[in-house]
Every structure is written in C-alpha cells, then in structure tokens.
Write a protein that binds this DNA or RNA. Structure first.
Length: 260
DNA sequence: CGTTATGTTTCACT
DNA sequence: CAGTGAAACATAAC
C-alpha cells in the first residue's frame, strides 16, 4: 500500500531495526526485481552496513558504509520486514539480506512491481527520475510553478511525481475530498485560492496520515478513506460516493461536496 | 471465470 | 513539447 505516508513508516521501521549491522548475504528469488545484476548488489552491500535512510516521495534510499546508495521502490504491494527465524520469513519476501546478528531484512513484494537499484548520488537519481521535492517538504511557490502552463485534471497533476513526489491514488482522492475539489477540475481553470486550498489539503493529509502511521482506521472520521468505495455515504453531504476513472486510475469522490 | 488492486514506464497518437 | 489512452509488467484476492 505504499504511498508517501506508508513509505515514511517503512523508513522509521528500518531506522529502528536494520541500521548498523554488517550484511553477510543476499538472496533474491526473482531477478526481475533487481535493476542491476545481483553480483553488483553483492559487491556493494556484503560486508557493509546500512547507515541512514532518506525518503523522496515513494522512493526509499538507504545509505550504506559502502560507496553506493541502495534505492528501494515498493510498487503497489510492498513493505520491508525484519525478522529472525526462517519460520517468520514473510511469504513474499523475494529479496532478503542477512545480517551478522542473524536477523534478516526481507523485501516483501507480492505483486513484484517493486524493485531495488543502486545509485551513486541521490541528487542525480532525483533528477534522472524527474522527481520533485518530497510532497511533505514541497514549497507552495514550487507547487505553483509546477502547475504553470498545465491544462489537465488536478488529480493527474497531483499524482505526477515531478509535481509532488509521493502522492498516489488514494492520497490524491483524499486531498481533493478535503479540499472540496472535483478530481477532473482543470488546473488552468483553478483560481490561486483553489490551488492554495489543494496545496494545504495535501499538507494536512500527509501529516495526518504520518501521525497515524498510515493506519487508515485511525484517520479522522471526515477522511474519505473511511468511505472510499462506490455507493458509500459522504460524511458531509450524506450523498453517495461515486467512482470514475481519471488518468486511468479508479477515482472516488463526492459529487455535491467536490465542486467542478 | 472475470475483475480489480495503493505504481511506473513506454509507446503510439493527437 | 503537452497531453492522452492503452498496454505492459506480476500476482493474489474477491
């Protein structure tokens, strides 16, 4: 389920479990998850330690004591899992590192859309992958600049990783619900006030989600995540939530509440 | 069996 | 260049 808040919880999890331990082995059950030959990862990881982590959007960077930075992307179904015994090995841990202390760092990825890579420079990686600043730290002026000249649906813009890195499908729906903005509103038709409203909603959704460890059940009652399904009841209007496609992605919204 | 799923990349068009 | 829609990638769950 990894969008920005989920990956932030993964970061915290890794920071509190897997840092500062010598890596002794690597295994990978499906090489398609590796963007480089496994031997490259082994060369740069074995004998090294995780030193610190950084997150930009949905990408997690793990700095090591070696010269390369490990880059993780979780795809649609991924999470890290730190465990000790083989019995507790997660079923879909397709990539596993073993530490000197006997624990393992498993990369769970049921659908195999996630991957690992190595980079020499996080800054370079960010440019190559056209990532904006992380949505959590993004400045209003940069957001406005990124919208300049764009004419498409606000939802597509929000999910554009070069505009606000980290916003994915559920967050875009939640942000637009909070901002009372219709998902297919064209950005060139939006007033400055409306753009600022969406920006503020984005910030709020991010902080609320992180505060609650991306645990949707703990989100405030007026958050769309509680009724983000077709035919469910909108908290504010009591009307039915509708399902449409925007930019090829399933989109849930409340027609009366979210104005075009 | 068919549909759907929280992501990214690529490609053929307009 | 901006934008679109579709396809591809893999697989489990409903």
């Amino acid at each position: 389920m990894p969008e920005l808040p989920e990956v932030e919880t993964y970061k915290t999890y890794i920071d509190s479990t897997a840092l500062h331990q010598r890596i002794t082995a690597m295994e990978c059950g499906d090489k398609r998850l590796l963007k480089q030959p496994q031997s490259d990862f082994e060369t740069h990881l074995i004998g090294q330690e995780f030193k610190a982590t950084q997150r930009i959007g949905k990408y997690l960077f793990i700095e090591t004591t070696g010269e390369k930075v490990l880059v993780l992307h979780f795809g649609m179904t991924g999470r890290p899992h730190y465990y000790k015994t083989e019995e507790s090995r997660p079923k879909y841990a397709h990539i596993v590192l073993t530490f000197e202390n006997g624990f393992h760092f498993g990369f769970e990825n049921k659908r195999k859309f996630g991957w690992w890579n190595l980079t020499s420079s996080i800054a370079e990686f960010k440019v190559e992958h056209k990532l904006s600043d992380d949505a959590r730290n993004l400045k209003l002026d940069d957001f406005k600049n990124a919208l300049e000249g764009r004419k498409t649906d606000i939802k597509k813009i929000l999910m554009d990783q070069s505009v606000a890195a980290g916003v994915g499908n559920w967050m875009a729906d939640e942000i637009l619900y909070q901002a009372q903005m219709h998902p297919t509103k064209k950005v060139n038709d939006m007033t400055t006030e409306a753009i600022e409203r969406v920006f503020e909603a984005m910030k709020k959704v991010i902080e609320v989600a992180i505060e609650n460890d991306a645990h949707y059940a703990d989100f405030p009652d007026h958050f769309l995540m509680h009724f983000r399904k077709e035919g469910a009841t909108c908290f504010h209007t009591g009307a039915k939530i509708e399902k449409i496609k925007v930019g090829g992605r399933t989109t849930y919204f409340s027609p009366e509440w979210q104005k075009l």
